[in-house]
Write a protein that binds this DNA or RNA. Structure first.
Length: 458
RNA sequence: GAGGUUGUAGCUCAGUUGGUUAGAGCGUCGGAUUGUGGUUCCGAAGGUCGCGGGUUCGAGACCCGUCUUCCUCCCCA
């Protein structure tokens, strides 16, 4: 019985034209990564559940795809846990492997595991798919590709600067007309929590303040109240709702506000240093903005936090990243600070499609098509075809003796710029018909002239 | 995980309060035109109406379930 073809929700097939665009995207990204001295690594698409679980907070755990144990391993199911309603534990006993959720945590595992084989600071890039059991939406998939660059083994803020330059260079190179590179620092957020006496509830606080531009001041107050923040605490953070203006205006406000917080001042110092460097070096199309409401949920960032948003499109963040001081400590290696960023290739692809930024030349996968007029005539074409390929052009001969109309239509559909016709007449005379499919013009030229032309095209 | 929404030809979509044989455009294929494509004209093929159950004399349409799509939350690339 024929089965209706389908793929799981949140996943996609890629047609040749789409792969061409994706490769162009990846190649552009890679070329920049390499130029800044990063080398590629790869890690398995699935890890041990224990490697991933608990690293992304409760929300994150929910979104991790688990791989059901197979065969005899199914007997490991912890039925006691099920009976006592301990579903997380029961789930863990059913699945000892899980699809990776991002590239950062596996990277931390990789660094600890191979620490003796690496030179620090270790700079790597990694372009691989990740999976999230999220509900699909615009720009949101269950399988998508992340392009990460990270450096571990240095606390130098020069890397923050470098990564901002990479954001700017990649996205400018891809032709995005404008985008905002949002930056914040976890220490500033900690300082706010400290000043408002809510040090232990920083996550709830940051989640609420992250919505400032969405639900407004009243909404944030309401949400904080609902979460049990007292009137006093809310009054203490109210000055932050006026946070606006230039980066230096914002810095000034925060210097005053966080005057009593040591950690807050430290965060401001760090941010200031990065801002100064970038101001001096300049950016191409990007705009670096100090954004206090940027409080990404990932609970492993300890210093800088980044996020990038493209202008003029309705799309969430297209890039993210930040500094994490303790990530490798989770796998037993302390005192190793890391900082990294991630490009959301699929979202960038969607943005570029929407803004029509892909070069039209990407469609072309064939330079020359030889028309097939018959078995005898094709012999002449085959010899020439071989030489054309050696020159470096993509070329092929139509596989059967179909009507010329059909062969030309095929050339048309394939976006082939040139067609060569060698029929009985041409085979005898040593000439060939060379047709420009764009202009429609055709000329009889010698084989030598043809090969010269091919050499120019390659 | 919560709420809403969608599904009819390869694609985009019509389809009246439930009523005969479910339509159009685009695309595909064939022909006009045996060595000249994109334009034009003529013709043809192509549908378990997402899937399963129910109501009814009768369901593409109504009800229930399920999957899928898109959207708002949550969260994130």
């Amino acid at each position: 019985m024929a089965q209706k073809p389908a793929i799981p929700k949140g996943t996609r097939d890629f047609l040749p034209s789409e792969v061409a665009k994706r490769n162009y995207l990846f190649e552009t990204i890679k070329s920049v990564f390499r130029r800044y001295g990063y080398a590629p690594i790869e890690t398995p698409s699935f890890e041990l559940s224990t490697t991933l679980m608990g690293k992304y907070g409760d929300e994150g755990d929910r979104l991790i795809f688990r791989i059901l144990n197979s065969g005899e391993k199914m007997r490991k199911a912890d039925l006691d846990a099920l009976a006592s309603d301990n579903l997380p534990r029961f789930a863990n006993s059913l699945a000892e492997k899980a699809l990776r959720y991002d590239l950062t945590v596996p990277f931390a595992r990789f660094v600890v595991q191979h620490q003796n084989e690496l030179t620090f600071p270790f700079k790597r890039y990694q372009i691989q798919p990740v999976w999230r059991a999220d509900r699909p939406q615009h720009g949101r998939y269950q399988e998508f590709t992340q392009c990460d660059v990270d450096v571990v083994g240095s606390e130098s803020l020069l890397y923050e600067v470098e990564l901002i330059q990479i954001f700017d260079e990649v996205l400018s190179k891809l032709g995005l007309p404008g985008f905002s590179i949002l930056i914040n620092n976890r220490k500033i957020l900690s300082g706010i929590a400290e000043v408002s006496n809510q040090a232990s509830r920083i996550v709830e606080f940051t989640v609420a303040i992250d919505k400032l531009d969405k639900i407004g001041e009243e909404g944030v107050v309401k949400e904080l109240t609902e979460k049990g923040f007292g009137v006093e605490a809310i009054e203490k953070i109210r000055p932050l709702f006026a946070f606006q203006g230039s980066n230096s205006d914002k810095m000034e406000l925060m210097r005053t506000y966080l005057a009593q917080s040591e950690i807050g001042q430290q965060g401001l110092d760090e941010l200031q240093e990065v801002l100064d460097h970038i101001a001096e070096l300049g950016l191409s199309k990007g705009e670096l903005i100090f954004d206090l409401t940027l409080a990404r949920g990932l609970n492993y960032y300890t210093g800088a936090i980044f996020e990038v948003k493209a202008h003029d499109v309705k799309m969430g963040s297209i890039c993210g990243g930040g500094r994490y001081d303790d990530l490798t400590a989770l796998f037993g290696l302390k005192g190793l600070s890391g900082v990294g960023i991630s490009f959301g290739a699929d979202r960038i692809y969607d943005v570029m499609t929407e803004l029509n930024l892909f070069p039209s030349t990407l469609d072309k996968t064939l330079d020359i098509l030889f028309i097939n007029f018959g078995d005898t005539e094709a012999r002449y074409s085959l010899q020439l075809l071989k030489e054309v390929r050696q020159i470096g052009l993509a070329a092929e001969i139509y596989p059967s003796v179909a009507k010329l109309q059909k062969q030309l239509k095929y050339a048309n559909d394939r976006n082939v710029p040139y067609v060569v016709m060698i029929g009985a007449e041409e085979a005898a005379s040593g000439m060939l018909g060379f047709k420009d499919m764009v202009s429609g013009q055709q000329a009889q030229i010698s084989r030598a002239d043809f090969l010269t032309k091919c050499a120019q095209l390659s």
